[in-house]
Design a protein around this nucleic acid. Structure first.
Length: 677
RNA sequence: GGCGAGGUAGCUCAGCUGGUUAGAGCGCAUGAUUCAUAAUCAUGAGGUCGGCGGUUCAAGCCCGCCUCUCGCUACCA
């Protein structure tokens, strides 16, 4: 493996429109923190970079809804996030933010460099524009009726009722969120990063030179590269963000995906005057810790920006994790289905390490994993308390009992002690290998193995019996047990910094070097240790029940709010209504449209004629089961081609609250062509 | 429909370029033990490695088809 002179470690910038939850921690911040603490202990030159991502449309919308400025929104969440990271022991060298002056300068400069090099492609397109407010409308600033489920308040990019993703032009009856007016389409100019031009070197760099990346990361990149890349707009018509540094681009800002990763660079600038060596020296190892939703940005888009800028290095690895579920369901900010870090810190004071432990032990390294409070309790009680805490306590209690808290002078060692030394040697090297390969779950197991060895050692040698017959031997046993405690402090502090600090104080131990653990003399004979305290305490059922109840309440609330029916549409006249020609028809033939998940091609007898209609019902009806069924058809709808098939009309469907579709049929057999009015 | 990742003991997961009786932790059962927060230690039960077919002397690992989960993507009048 290549040796690097220094490391730049970044963590995905949390979006400052909400606090941080356990999913973020397990996937990104806990593993990154372990990695960095490890590097520091080994005296590597490393900087650990984080910060809040504070631009983008959702923040401006939130601000609007709350009647405050975007800056006030991001100030609030930035502070919450920063504070909870700090309390949780995420050991950033700097936790910055993208609304800072230095970031605006850095990002604008970065854009300007690419612009001057002629990297961007300019394009003029038509966007919705609010004339009354004289501003362009981002997708999220347009609401209208969802073309799929007819929900009245769907956003321009997504319908929150049926979950389908949309583009603004699809909305029926679009309205501006700001003024309520109907927007017009107006031309606007934007700059695009031509990712398609970089395909060749990206393929070479990732697919050939980084086969060691995690399978999920590598596979995701391959998927994108094989599908072909497209130019991507780097600017937007918006007033919240980094101003585009061009005269002809007033009222435009950098698209948030473009400015956010540059935040890593600006934070480094803010941290150190010699920031450039962390970003521009080939002997620096750049590592991005992210979640799987960010793979394409950090593996393809940001590297493209860095490479085309010309002076930057590219990431050496991007260890992206999968997602953490909560009690079997996807974590969701909008449905409040989450364990929020700031709430955990209040509900479980001084138990940062318990959560760090559980999230690391169960981290979604290779696939989505599930956090349950029962597992949280079990890992605390059966592993932290029973294995680790118990071993430490046994060793310390016996030392106080037999030697008044002084480390005994060991006598001769036996094969048993030699064995232990060898085991520790192996544990240490395994642990190192695992950390360096981003296998934090395994590394944590390696660490726990130390206490397991200790517990077994005590059970095998039974010093509480030997003390009566062979007190010299007991000195060796206790000496070795205490060394195991000290070794735990050194190797364990990367995972459990708070508890290991506490243990260090109990052992009255100096800061020691990672490499010294193998000497088995971190605690010298005659050294006096302090009073023993419990490192971890048992978490009882009541405490777990509390959390489960909290979640049950959330679930209840979500269910009751899901029952809302979309409001009545605006009034129309009878004339409006009779324009629609709806007839009873019978399905004669039905077959699935190939290469489409949802489409069924139907031949229906409308009484007027027999015609082909394509309908998106394949998820709810099997073609063979609906032949002969009578349905309602809007027959005078303009024909349209779907997947190459001309569809003449529309089958009327009822959309249930879960989004499923059902036919609307006459109660009894009715003549085809009967008018519905 | 296309692409990617995953489907290994009750649970959470390891299994390197295919090679003897498939591993770990938790849970469970039995025994030992009391220094320790009813904690510890030992032993054991438990798997047709998602399904079917193929390549091979030999497949959890390679190939084909199917199926389920997650993600991206196309389609949705």
């Amino acid at each position: 493996m290549k040796e690097f002179k220094r490391y730049t470690v970044t963590t995905a910038l949390p979006y400052a429109n909400g606090p941080v939850h356990i999913g973020h921690l397990a996937g990104v911040y806990v593993p990154a923190d372990i990695y960095v603490r490890y590097l520091r202990l080994r005296h590597k030159d490393v900087i650990f970079i984080g910060g809040s991502d504070e631009h983008g449309v959702p923040i401006t919308l939130k601000a609007r809804n709350e009647g405050v400025t975007p800056q006030q929104v991001v100030d609030r969440y930035h502070n919450i996030i920063k504070e909870s990271f700090k309390k949780f022991g995420i050991s950033y060298d700097i936790y910055s933010r993208t609304s800072s002056q230095i970031h605006h300068e850095t990002a604008a400069e970065f854009f300007k460099t690419l612009y001057d090099k002629g990297e961007f492609v300019e394009k003029i397109s038509k966007q919705y524009f609010d004339e009354a407010e004289s501003q362009f409308l981002a997708d999220r600033y347009i609401i209208g009726t969802c073309p799929k489920c007819e929900y009245e308040a769907a956003y321009g990019d997504q319908c929150e009722n049926c979950g389908s993703s949309l583009s603004p032009e699809e909305l029926i009856n679009p309205r501006s969120v700001i003024s309520g007016n109907k927007p017009i389409l107006k031309e606007t100019k934007h700059w695009y990063l031509p990712l398609d031009k970089y395909e060749n070197w990206l393929k070479q760099w990732i697919l050939e030179e980084h086969k060691e990346w995690k399978p999920n990361v590598y596979g995701q990149c391959k998927s994108w590269l094989d599908a072909g890349l497209f130019p991507r707009a780097v600017t937007r018509d918006l007033d919240w963000g980094v101003k585009v540094p061009l005269h002809e681009a007033e009222n435009k800002v950098l698209y948030v995906w473009f400015d956010a990763p540059i935040g890593y660079i600006s934070a480094t600038k803010e941290l150190r005057p010699d920031w450039e060596k962390y970003w521009k020296d080939a002997e620096t190892k750049l590592v991005h810790f992210i979640g799987k939703d960010n793979i394409v940005f950090h593996c393809i888009i940001f590297p493209s920006m860095l490479k085309q800028e010309g002076s930057y290095i590219l990431p050496e690895n991007v260890p992206a994790n999968e997602f953490l579920n909560l009690e079997g369901d996807k974590i969701s900010t909008s449905r409040n289905w989450a364990v929020w870090l700031h709430e955990y810190l209040e509900d479980f004071p001084n138990k940062q390490d318990v959560l760090r432990y559980v999230l690391c032990a169960n981290a979604p390294e290779t696939k989505d994993s599930d956090f349950t409070w029962k597992d949280f309790q079990a890992r605390n009680n059966n592993e932290l308390v029973a294995i680790l805490g118990n071993f430490i306590n046994r060793a310390l209690v016996l030392t106080h009992k037999y030697y008044d808290g002084k480390i005994p002078v060991p006598s001769e060692i036996t094969d048993k002690e030699k064995e232990i030394r060898e085991e520790i040697l192996k544990i240490k090297s395994d642990l190192e290998k695992n950390i360096e390969n981003y296998k934090f779950r395994e590394a944590l197991k390696d660490f726990m193995q130390i206490s397991r060895i200790g517990n077994k050692y005590l059970a095998d040698t039974e010093p509480w019996k030997l003390i009566k017959t062979d007190s010299e031997r007991v000195k060796t046993i206790m000496y070795y047990s205490l060394q195991l405690c000290a070794i735990s402090v050194v190797l364990g502090e990367i995972f459990l910094p708070f508890s290991m600090e506490k243990l260090r104080n109990m052992l009255n131990m100096e800061k020691t070097d990672w490499e010294d653990v193998l000497k088995f003399d971190l605690l010298k004979p005659e050294h006096k240790i302090n009073q023993a305290e419990l490192l971890f305490e048992i978490i009882d059922d009541a405490k777990i029940e509390e959390q489960l109840n909290k979640l049950a309440k959330t679930k209840e609330m979500n269910e009751s709010s899901a029952k809302t029916v979309s409001p009545q549409k605006e009034e129309i006249t009878y004339d409006d209504f009779v324009k629609q020609d709806i007839r009873v028809a019978t399905i004669l033939e039905a077959e699935k449209v190939p290469k489409a998940d949802k489409l069924v091609k139907l031949l229906v007898d409308t009484g007027i004629d027999k015609r082909t209609i394509v309908s998106g019902i394949a998820e709810y009806y099997k073609p063979e089961e609906i032949i002969g069924k009578q349905v309602c058809v809007l027959v005078n709808l303009a024909p349209r081609k779907l997947r190459g098939i001309e569809s003449a009309g529309m089958i009327l469907m009822a959309t249930d609250k879960d989004g499923s579709l059902k036919f609307v049929s006459p109660e009894n057999l009715t003549a085809n062509g009967s008018v519905i009015s």
